[in-house]
Nucleic acid binder design. Structure first.
Lengths: 190, 190
DNA sequence: ACCTGAACACCGTTCAAGT
DNA sequence: ACCTGAACACCGTTCAAGT
């Protein structure tokens, strides 16, 4: 569960919990009962503490939810690999993020609902931007490209998650191909 | 506010309200304070009735929220116009839906959160499918096409709504062009 | 620094009762 | 059929008090 926890001076009583255990409990509640099942009271019950104890680790529910998003979005392939062609690197990264969000659609809902003040979104964003900048395209163009791809990714996850009689499973790859092709053609030509 | 209300036998007391007024109140609360401001209690207060009276018009909060989505998505251009080229008709319809959702981003969130059992989503879907079928493409292919476009549309609305330092305003049209071009090329060739 | 229960201000919804 | 207030089972969060 990759998110940073500052080392503390350890004065006073030893903590019963830590941020990771709270996040794990929250994620298991999320997987079982959806977003509605994630509450400070249920987490406290799950961990055998007062629901108020959770405030020792997260200042608010929004702060906890942001940690859930960060833990989910932390996939390795968004880190740029050297030497790989642009289209392939982009496609792999988008595919992995898609996979991570498809396994936990509620996290995609949070991506939409949350204020997104946290640092994690900027990290993911910058990593993807580096993928585009490596190929020598300008900053504004790279931002538009990321926006285009991420728009499509988020929409795909959210719709596919609750598809009743929608498109086929290949529909996502099909659209992604259109976008990557059009994007790369314009980037390399311009 | 285009959604159907069945005419009733009118036995017993004359209603104080009707579904349209409830929806209007809910939408004004939504525009002022976001989704969090939409509650049966506040609507009742706004309309000068008990919060329980709202249950006379909508069986549950989800039913009310679905009506809000239906009222917002009811844009004229999704109805097929005869003689217009496919790419143009699709682009216009997508553009109008995009505009409607951009003015009320919370409705896009609802599109994501809600179960979507209602009939309205099928109507919009069928209307868009007709646009594709008019050009003679198969049913499965048409569904995939709609899925691709709608994925992108929803993602774009949700991201653009809370964009802090994202892509430029043209980013949406750019991606839409890639998708429509790729889609039409494949449809007409295959 | 961490933990706790009571209390506050909200929810949606059920119920029983009124017209 | 429509309207209502009390009550129930939940929330997140503040507060004061404990270790």
């Amino acid at each position: 569960l990759g998110f940073v926890t500052a080392t503390r001076p350890q004065r006073g009583r030893k903590p019963l919990l830590d941020e990771v255990r709270v996040v794990e409990s929250a994620l298991s509640l999320l997987d079982e009962g959806g977003l509605a099942a994630v509450s400070f009271r249920r987490i406290g019950q799950d961990l055998g503490v007062s629901h108020m104890t959770i405030y020792s680790y997260f200042d608010s529910k929004d702060a906890l939810l942001e940690a859930l998003v960060a833990a989910t979005l932390n996939v390795p392939s968004v880190r740029p690999r050297e030497g790989a062609p642009l289209a392939e690197a982009l496609t792999v990264a988008m595919h992995d993020i898609y996979g991570a969000l498809t396994e936990r659609p509620a996290i995609a809902e949070l991506l939409v609902t949350l204020p997104l003040n946290g640092t994690w979104i900027n990290e993911v964003r910058e990593a993807l931007l580096d993928l585009l900048r490596d190929v020598g395209c300008g900053d504004a163009r790279a931002r538009d490209g990321i926006s285009v791809l991420f728009n499509y990714l988020l929409g795909a996850v959210l719709i596919d998650a609750r598809r009743s009689r929608g498109g086929s499973p290949q529909a996502y790859d099909q659209g992604l191909r259109y976008l990557v092709d059009g994007l790369c053609a314009e980037l390399l030509a311009g």
